[in-house]
Design a protein around this nucleic acid. Structure first.
Length: 116
RNA sequence: CAGGCUGGUCGGGCGAUCGCGGCUCAAAGAGUCGAGGAAAGUCCGCACUUCAUAGAGCGCGAUGCCGAGGAAAUCUCGGGGCGGAGCAAUCUGUCGGAUCGGGUCACAGAAAAUAACCGCUUUUACCCUCGGGUGAAAGUAAGGGUGAAAAGGUGGUGUAAAAGACCACCAGCGUCAGUAGCAAUAUUGGCGGCUAGAUAACCCCCAUCGGAAGCAAGGCCAAGCAGAGAUGAUGAGCUGCUCGCUCUUCCCAUCUCAGGUAGGCUGCACAGAUAGAUGAUCGCCAACGGGAUGAAAAUCCCCGAACAAGAUGCGGCUUAUAGACCGGCCUGAGGC
RNA sequence: GGCCGACUAGCUCAAUUUGGCAGAGCAAUUGACUCUUAAUCAAUCGGUUCUGGGUUCGAGUCCCAGGUCGGUCA
């Protein structure tokens, strides 16, 4: 995933997490808000807390979530900032399961291009 | 053969496909490089940076047997003293000073350090049933329930009763000399005074060492905002205090044109990020375990890598770790 | 990444200074009071002092190593 589609600043994470709406799933949590300055791109940030496990497990969880977001990125409505937080059970499942979970979350949040 | 102790090495390898991060060429894309033995905990030390160019004294802190290595270290190797575990191989704790001085030693006990409460002994006064009893003075650490610990131990001489008061042996202290060793130290002999409780991981004394803070250190550029800086006095800072040194935020006077927040770059490395990069699938090989067939050798099938990931770098320590390989040694049983 | 601090009964905290029988309040259990409950009163129960070593006659306290949790620094 290219860097200009990523959330990289700590202040951006704080803004999304404080003001955005959250949608939960056993494997991960989605938090979304409209971009400031009306940017047309969709930016995605990935996080994994200490409850996921040690550094190896956290890296694997973020890698899975980033790969799923890479696949689904063209289908996401533009102009939003998203934060995806991994949860502990994600280290036991494989890639397609994560992609299905992310797609379900996007539909619930009305951010999928199939939504009207 | 079984069980155990210990030293070292490795921590899957090769190939294919799809992916990740940096750099170079650059239109897609191609080339090249890409984490560990502990990268971890942050327990020590050093480099490096700033504070004054890092100074002086006090205080505070750390370390403490000997030799060698090392830039240094609560480091490594070898040796020594005193302990602990184990039949053994071996593992493991600790290390200046208790005659500078102070503090503490609960409960029990006469007494916890200037030991006379009971007891023992002598002298003397009084009473008396003439056995003795009571009181006073003096001597005495041989005996006394206690306690973690009771003032060298045993035997004898000696005495009114006792006592290192004296003697023999033993234990321990100081000192001198010999022997072994670089040394710590061990051992033998002589001499001395005859006895010194424990605690310094309590204060303290002695010796050696240490200025403080830390890459979120620090340097450069620089939106918004705002004037800012230099000199004198005053005040502030540098380490807890004093000296000493340096600086000028607020207020006053004079002079000069830059200061700095968000943010960015750097510090930063032939891995070098700045929300943080190494994995997945397949095949072969090596290898542990399990199952089936078989008298055995062997064959076939299945399963599968532990602990764990850089964030300034390096030297150590400590902690986590499935297993594999190569040595050395001990105990037990059997055979020759 | 650096630097600090805490851990004691089910919960909130004492005792650590100067080592000497580990305590208080709430909670829980039982009894009394009450027609019953609450409140009140009395009693009881409840601890490997985060873990493991060491110093000491003796450790919650002193020393060393580890674990968990929290704070702070751009």
């Amino acid at each position: 995933m290219q860097r200009n589609f990523r959330l990289t600043r700590s202040t951006d994470f704080k803004r999304v997490r404080r003001n955005g709406k959250s949608y939960a799933h056993p494997l991960l949590v989605l938090i979304a808000i409209e971009s400031e300055n009306n940017l047309s791109t969709t930016r995605v940030g990935v996080a994994a807390g200490k409850s996921v496990g040690n550094a190896v497990k956290r890296n694997r969880a973020k890698r899975l979530v980033r790969a799923a977001a890479q696949d689904l990125h063209p289908q996401i409505k533009s102009g939003y900032d998203l934060v995806l937080i991994a949860r502990a059970p994600i280290i036991q499942v494989k890639m397609p399961v994560v992609r299905i979970a992310l797609q379900a979350l996007l539909l619930r949040a009305s951010l999928h291009k199939n939504n009207v």
